[in-house]
């Protein structure tokens, strides 16, 4: 199954993706700031990700990819 992947340094931590996930598994992590100083979005449970890309559709920064080479 294709999984969502967040580009750590592109993400601005706006959280729009978190509103779109039907499985409620996209959250903003609070442990590591990226190079721009944002806490970024992460998928907290890869197993549950259905690869629907709704998170990516809401991302204003093209920071989320689903499937393809990004996931091997």
């Amino acid at each position: 199954m294709a999984k969502m992947k967040v580009d750590f340094d592109r993400c601005k931590g706006c959280g729009l993706c978190t509103t779109a996930c039907p499985k409620k598994i996209v959250e903003l992590q609070t442990e590591k700031l990226n190079s721009k100083g944002y806490y970024t979005a992460v998928c907290i449970d890869d197993e549950k990700c259905i690869g629907c890309a709704l998170c990516a559709i809401m991302c204003p920064d093209c920071a989320i990819t689903v499937g393809g080479e990004a996931n091997g």
Binding site: R10, I50, I57, I64, T65
Partner: peptide, 26 residues
């Protein structure tokens, strides 16, 4: 389910818009 990635007609540049600004989506 189709893959999702940045369209070709967008460059690789990180946009200067504020976090959560919907300009990026449009």
């Amino acid at each position: 389910m189709p893959d999702f990635k940045k369209p070709h007609a967008l460059t690789d540049a990180v946009m200067h818009y504020c976090p959560g600004c919907t300009h990026g989506i449009v």
